[in-house]
Structure formats: C-alpha cells, structure tokens
C-alpha cells in the first residue's frame, strides 16, 4: 500500500522495490540486486524527493 501511494503521488513504478531474502539465499540476492539495479538505471537519475538547497538547521 505504501508503494501504491508513492506511485499514486508520482514516483515512477520500478523506483521502489521490495523483496524478502533469507541470508541463505545468496543467488536470489544477486538476482534481485541485479534486477533492481537494471530497472533503476533504466529510469535514470532520481528527480523527486531531492532537496536542491542544503537545509539550514
């Protein structure tokens, strides 16, 4: 549902990924990490949720 709301507000599908990987599933980890990297690369650099000016504390 959080992903749903983020995408509803304009975050690109494919920017946010969820997965459940056990510490014993090394191959699954590699697979998922690669897909995430590929999909995010395809979308290009993030445009949203970035503050351009440094916030003054």
């Amino acid at each position: 549902m959080m992903k749903g709301l983020l995408e509803y507000m304009g975050t690109e599908p494919g920017r946010l990924h969820f997965s459940w990987i056990s510490s014993a599933e090394s191959t699954k980890f590699v697979e998922v990490a690669n897909t995430v990297a590929e999909e995010v690369k395809a979308l290009g650099p993030a445009k949203h949720f970035i503050k351009e000016k440094a916030e003054v504390a």
Binding site: E7, Y8, M9, G10, T11, E12, P13, H48
Partner: peptide, 8 residues
Amino acid sequence: PDEKWAFF
C-alpha cells in the same frame, strides 16, 4: 508518473 507528480 510525471503528470501525477506535477498534479500533486
């Protein structure tokens, strides 16, 4: 997605 972002 871009339209949604602009809308909000």
